[in-house]
C-alpha cells in the first residue's frame, strides 16, 4: 500500500485516515477476529471512566430510519482495569492508539487523565458529552464555558496529545471548537451522537429508561458534515470527522469539509469490515484522480 493515504494529525502519523469510533468497537479484539485491524489508521477505545461502570438498564439500542439510537451508559471496566487488561494488547498493534476518556465530574476526568499519564498511548480523546453529576446531570459539552473549564483542567493534567470530542448538542459548536483550541487541545473530533427520543406507543412511555438517547448513523451524516465544515473553518488544530460514514465517498466528503481523519462508528454494525472498504475506496479514488496525497484535498471545500 503506497503512502497517499498517510496523514498527520497533531503530530501523530496515521497510515491512513480511518479510525474506529469509540463505543462501537470495544478495544478492537472482536473485530480483529474478523479482519486485520492493523490495516486501520487508528482505533478509539470504548469510553473509559475513572471507576468501572455497569451501564444503563433497559433497552440499549433502537433502530430508526437510517439510524440507531443507543443508551449503553458507558459500561466500561474503568481506567485501571483497562491499563491492566487491554492497553498492552493495543500497544502491540501497529495502529494509532486513541484512548477515549469520559467523566461525570471534573475531578474524575483529572484523575483519569493522570492515571493515563503513566502509560503509552498516542492520543487521549476527551469525551465531554457526559452528564455532570454536580450540575443536575447537565451535559459538560453543551455550554461552551462549562466545556472550556473541563478542557482547561484536563489539559493541565494530561501529558498526552489531547483531542476533545465535541457534542452536536452544544449550544454553539463553532464557539466550542474555538474554546478547545484556546485551552490548548491538540485536536478535536466531532460529532458525538445527537440527543434524540423514541416512544413506545403501546406502553405510552419512552423506549429508553433514560428517556433520551444518542442518535447516530447515515441519518445524521449531512448535519455532522456541516458541523465538521464549520468547526474546521474556525480552528487551526486538526479535526477528526465523525457522523454516519458508511462509504468511502462519505469519508472523502468529510475530508473535503476539512477533517484530517475520520472515524467510523455505526457503520461497523452494517459491515464489521466496512472500514477496509472505506480505506480501499479512498485509495482507488486518489489513484484514479492522480492525487498524490490525501492531504491535498483536505478542506478543499
Amino acid at each position: 500500500m503506497s503512502g497517499v493515504l498517510q496523514t498527520e494529525f497533531a503530530g501523530v502519523t496515521f497510515k491512513n485516515p480511518v479510525v474506529l469510533a469509540s463505543g462501537t468497537c470495544g478495544f478492537g479484539r472482536e473485530y480483529n477476529e474478523i479482519f486485520d485491524i492493523e490495516r486501520l489508521g487508528g482505533i478509539s477505545t470504548k469510553g473509559l471512566t475513572l471507576n468501572p461502570r455497569q451501564g444503563n438498564e433497559g433497552v440499549r439500542i433502537w433502530e430508526t430510519d437510517c439510524g440507531v439510537m443507543n443508551s449503553v451508559g458507558l459500561e466500561n471496566p474503568g481506567v485501571r482495569k483497562f491499563i491492566e487488561d487491554e492497553l498492552g494488547w493495543l500497544n502491540g498493534l501497529d495502529v494509532v492508539n486513541i484512548v477515549n476518556l469520559s467523566g461525570h465530574s471534573i475531578e474524575d476526568y483529572i484523575e483519569g487523565a493522570e492515571l493515563l499519564n503513566g502509560v503509552k498511548l498516542d492520543i487521549v480523546e476527551l469525551n465531554i458529552s457526559c452528564p455532570n453529576v454536580r450540575a443536575g446531570g447537565m451535559n459538560f459539552g453543551v455550554k461552551t464555558e462549562v466545556a472550556r473549564e473541563v478542557v482547561r483542567k484536563v489539559r493541565a493534567a494530561c501529558k498526552h496529545k489531547l483531542m476533545v470530542k465535541l457534542s452536536p448538542n452544544a449550544e454553539d459548536v463553532t464557539a466550542l471548537a474555538r474554546a478547545c483550541e484556546e485551552e490548548g487541545a491538540d485536536g478535536i473530533s466531532l460529532v458525538n451522537t445527537f440527543l434524540a427520543m423514541a416512544i413506545d406507543i403501546k406502553k405510552r412511555s419512552p423506549v429508553f429508561e433514560n428517556v433520551y438517547a444518542g442518535l447516530s448513523g447515515p441519518a445524521i451524516k449531512p448535519i455532522a458534515l456541516r458541523m465538521v465544515h464549520q468547526a474546521a473553518k474556525a480552528v487551526q488544530i486538526p479535526v477528526m470527522g465523525i457522523g454516519g460514514i458508511v462509504s468511502w465517498q462519505d469519508a472523502v466528503e468529510f475530508i473535503m469539509a476539512g477533517a484530517a481523519a475520520v472515524q467510523i462508528g455505526t457503520g461497523n454494525f452494517i459491515d464489521p469490515a466496512i472500514s477496509l472498504s472505506v480505506i480501499d475506496g479512498m485509495q482507488g479514488y486518489l489513484d484514479s484522480q492522480k492525487i498524490g496525497s490525501i492531504e491535498e484535498i483536505k478542506g478543499c471545500v
Binding site: 463505543g23 468497537c25 470495544g26 472482536e30 440499549r60 449503553v72 459500561e75 461497523n268 454494525f269
Partner: peptide
C-alpha cells in the same frame, strides 16, 4: 448491533 461482543447493546 455488532453481534460479536464489541458494542455492549445486547446486555
Amino acid at each position: 448491533a455488532c453481534g460479536v461482543g464489541a458494542c455492549l447493546v445486547c446486555n
